[in-house]
Amino acid sequence: MNLTLHVWRQKGPADEGRMVQYEVKDVSEHASFLEMLDVLNQQLIGRGEEPVAFEHDCREGICGSCGFMINGDAHGPMPGTTVCQLHMRHFKDGDVLHIEPWRSRAFPVLKDLVVDRGAFDRIIQAGGFISVATGEAPEANLIPVPKPVADRAMDAAQCIGCGACVAQCPNGAASLFTSAKVSHLNLLPQGQPERFDRALSMVEAMDREGFGYCSNHAECEAVCPKEISIDFIARMNRDYLKAKAQRGMKTPLQT
C-alpha cells in the first residue's frame, strides 16, 4: 500500500517544529507501524535527510518506550495496542496519516516524536515504592495476599508508563498513570504502612510536574495499551481524600 504521512519534525527542544509531508510506497500490510517508519527512515537516509527520530525499544508492547499520535489517536486506532504492535493491515492504501508527538507541558519534545517523560519517574520517586531495603524482607509466604487482591493489584501494575493517557486526555492529566501505581501498591498488604503518605505525595507530585486535572472523561482508559481501568483513579482519589481528612492540616512529608 502507499501512504501519505504528515510527520512532526523538530530538530531539538528549542526548535519551533513543523509538520512535514512524506510519501511511503509499497508498504507491506504485515509490517508493524514502526517498521513502516523504519522503511521511511532508510529512504530518508538514502536521500541524505535526517531520519525521523522516534522512541522504541522492545517492540513487543511492554517497555513503554514507543508512542505517538496517529490521526488523533494515541498509539493509533487499535485498542489495547502500542504502536510497535500496531500492524499496517489496519490501514488501507491511500491513507493520509498525521503523526505527532505526545503533547503535554510535562513532556517536552526533545526531537521529532521523542518526548521527555522524566516527570513519570519523579512521580514514582514521590512515593511509588514500598520501603524495604534489600535483606529486610520476611519469608514471602508470611504475608498472604488474597488472590482477588493480587489479581487486582496486577491489573494496575501492568502499566507500561508510555504516556498515552496523558497524551489523549483533554486536560493533559496523568491521573491514570499515577493512580495505577498508587493502586498497585495500596491494594497490597505490603503497601499499607505507607498507603496514605503515598497517595498524598504522588498526587501532589503529579500537580507539581504540570499535568492537568482529571475530569473523568475516560479517554485515557480508551487508549491505554494495557487497558487499565479508571476505577483506579477513583481509588487514588479516595485514598488521597481520606489521607487529607486524617492528616487535617498537616502537609505531607516532602520527598
Binding site: M19, H98, E100, R103, R105, A106, G210, F211
Partner: peptide, 10 residues
C-alpha cells in the same frame, strides 16, 4: 498542561 495543541484533533 497542553500549551501546544495537536495539529490533528484528538
Amino acid at each position: 498542561a497542553r500549551p501546544r495543541a495537536y495539529a490533528s484533533r484528538p
